[in-house]
């Protein structure tokens, strides 16, 4: 068997507090190959923290523990900070939720994109500019030369998110973590941004971790789905087999979405069973 891009076994994220430690992620195991993996759950289910733990972005007092966390066979749990700086952006990139808060407001779009590239690759400034403009063109931004000199407040939300995607893909990472990349966007723009991301990820043979609370969106867009509840994986399935999901939490999430084509008088509301919280985490290794 080939070594997967990413291998995580028994990941815990813990925040100590005065009374008892709070476990935000509890014993999550999964692998990622060259595929699109969706992580779904409500707010507070630990899906974003799982993504952040992979980049080692969890700061003290938060504690990250795992039996194994490897990228291409390299241990990233105990890698030095200097090595992590090379890996972040270079090997694993993360697209954050809101472009308004993740772009630097006082640098032009082109400047910060070239900076991201030059931090990881040895290229001249003029070369970086050419590559940046080419990348902006790839994310379907019209007139990339003009956008290169714009500042983040001068671009729309959908364009900002496409710039984020372009910036993250520029150093050619192996893994992309997208943390609710479209929840700040309109439906019509949402599809467009997802299609662009999908195409680029597929063309480059990257691994994608797609974090979202929208189960239907993830089902459409990913190969495999992990469903998280209270820091544990409650179910994992192929995206095509989502309709045969068995866990009541998954079914609850599916039924709570209002659907234009199949109207109902009342939407189903999740009834949370305390047993879900205590059940052991399902492994999502392949």
């Amino acid at each position: 068997m080939i070594e997967p891009l990413l291998n995580v076994e028994n990941l815990w994220v813990r925040f100590p507090s005065r009374n008892a430690d709070f476990d935000a992620v509890r014993g999550v195991s999964f692998t990622l190959g060259q595929e699109r993996l969706g992580i779904v759950g409500e707010s507070g289910s630990g899906k974003s923290l799982t993504g952040r733990a992979l980049l080692r972005l969890i700061q003290s007092p938060g504690i990250v523990e795992a039996d194994r966390m490897t990228l291409h066979g390299e241990n990233i749990l105990h890698a030095s900070e200097a090595r992590m700086r090379q890996l972040r952006g270079g090997q694993i990139s993360m697209i954050m939720q809101d472009p308004k808060f993740s772009l630097n407001p006082v640098m032009s779009v082109g400047q910060q994109m070239s900076e991201a590239l030059r931090a990881h690759k040895k290229v001249s400034k003029s070369q970086a500019r050419i590559q940046t403009i080419k990348m902006l063109d790839e994310v379907a931004i019209r007139d990339p030369e003009r956008v290169f000199d714009l500042f983040p407040h001068e671009v729309s939300g959908g364009m900002g998110q496409r710039i984020m995607i372009a910036m993250m893909l520029l150093p050619n990472p192996k893994i992309l973590i997208a943390d609710e990349p479209t929840s700040a966007l309109d439906v019509s723009v949402q599809i467009q941004v997802l299609d662009i991301m999908d195409k680029l990820v597929r063309d480059r043979g990257m691994g994608l971790i797609f974090i979202s609370h929208d189960l239907n969106l993830v089902a459409k867009f990913c190969d495999r789905i992990i469903i998280m509840y209270a820091g544990r994986i409650v179910e994992t399935c192929k995206a095509s087999e989502l309709r045969q999901a068995k866990h009541p939490y998954t079914l609850g999430l599916l039924n709570s979405v209002p659907n234009l084509e199949h109207p109902r008088d009342r939407l189903d509301v999740l009834k949370r069973d305390p047993a879900w919280r205590d059940a052991p985490s399902v492994s999502a290794c392949q």
């Binding site: 609370h213 999430l253 979405v257 209002p258 009342r266 509301v269 999740l270």
Partner: peptide
Amino acid sequence: VSVQAEILNLLADLQQSQGLTYIMVSHDLG
């Protein structure tokens, strides 16, 4: 989505019981 369902049900119930008039703005057609 799960909390959204609760709030939408609440709004529907309140409208029924109190006979309210709503104008609702959203970008979500569902």
